[in-house]
């Protein structure tokens, strides 16, 4: 339900002046519906989204705007507190420089602009009260795979903003670890590491990969050496998780991000822990990628347990 003031009018609206390369509404997504084929979606750099909300006094699930490289500009129709986090970007209000990573007051009628990211890829613009488009399955997030949620922002679009319900945080710290010179991604091996040759797993650990420009909210794609399969044939479709490192027939690993499909038929060599995915969301094309495979502590669940570490026979080969 949209927030309404005493006179029954919407509390606030923002008008998109410059949508930018790709700006979407994001929150914490719609987990819990994967069995219906519904991706989780939600902010790719979740810590940055949460921080932006904290800075303006929102709860974590309030919707923010996620920009891609070129930022965006919106005109606010009522005075509102905003904050920009994620990729460090120039912020202006009414054309004047304003703080990144802090609560900023925007007077009625003024344009708040997030400029081109100086580092990283995705900035988050939070409004006190949150973007209050109609939720779908409990979330306002734009899901680019399945088309759920509002469409990406377009110039001239108008978005409702809810009533502020918390005090902006006046002392919080926007952390930016600096642009990653190298994206280091731990990979918990499994469930289908046995679909790859020992040489392929060595290549995963030692190969020189870079972030491909073909990546998107569905997955981070990589350039680099191909991972060779130990077996042919098709894997029957199985459930996919956030951070899954799926290897399509071309052998180049794809790291699944928030809009990933819920099932897939290419083998998953391992899974990148969610805590490492914020950095993946901020890695610009060309960034070197180093995968660090490890055997997860859960690996003992593999049955039957083979003491010498070789793989049990069976599976879907042939």
């Amino acid at each position: 339900m949209s927030a309404a003031g005493p006179d029954g009018a919407r509390e606030a609206e923002v008008e998109v002046v410059r949508a930018g390369a790709l700006t979407t509404v994001q929150d914490l997504g719609r987990p819990g519906h994967a069995h219906l084929g519904v991706p989780r979606s939600g902010a790719l750099d979740e810590p940055a989204h949460r921080l932006a909300n904290r800075l303006v006094g929102n709860r974590a699930h309030a919707a923010t705007l996620e920009t891609t490289l070129t930022g965006c500009a919106v005109r606010v129709r009522r005075a509102v507190t905003v904050a920009v986090t994620g990729a460090p970007s120039p912020v202006t209000v009414g054309g004047r420089p304003a703080a990144w990573g802090a609560a900023v007051h925007v007077p009625a009628g003024a344009v708040v602009e997030v400029g081109r990211a100086a580092a990283g890829l995705r900035a988050y613009l939070a409004f006190a009260g949150g973007i209050e488009v109609e939720p779908v399955l409990g979330s306002r997030a734009t899901d680019l795979l399945s088309g759920l949620g509002p469409p990406p922002l377009a110039d001239g679009a108008v978005l409702p903003v809810g009533a502020p319900h918390g005090r902006p945080a006046d002392a919080d710290t926007a952390v930016w670890r600096g642009p990653a010179r190298e994206l280091v991604l731990p990979v918990a091996l499994g469930p289908r590491d046995d679909w790859f040759t020992a040489a392929a797993l060595h290549t995963l650990a030692t190969g020189r990969f870079t972030v491909s420009p073909a990546g998107n909210r569905i997955g981070l794609r990589t350039h680099g050496p191909a991972l060779e399969r130990a077996r042919g044939g098709e894997l029957p479709s199985e459930g996919m998780v956030l951070g899954a490192v799926q290897v399509p027939p071309d052998g180049r690993p794809v790291v699944f991000l928030a809009d990933h499909p819920t099932t897939g038929g290419y083998p998953v060599v391992g899974v990148v822990p969610a805590r490492a995915l914020a950095a993946a969301a901020q890695a610009v094309p060309g960034t070197p990628v180093r995968f660090v495979p490890f055997r997860p502590r859960t690996a003992a669940v593999r049955h039957p347990v083979v003491p010498d570490g070789t793989r049990p026979p069976g599976g879907y080969g042939g």
Partner: peptide, 15 residues
Amino acid sequence: MRVLPVGEHALLLEA
């Protein structure tokens, strides 16, 4: 049935 590890928060039952 086999149980396969999927990261640190999931598992896969394979029938």
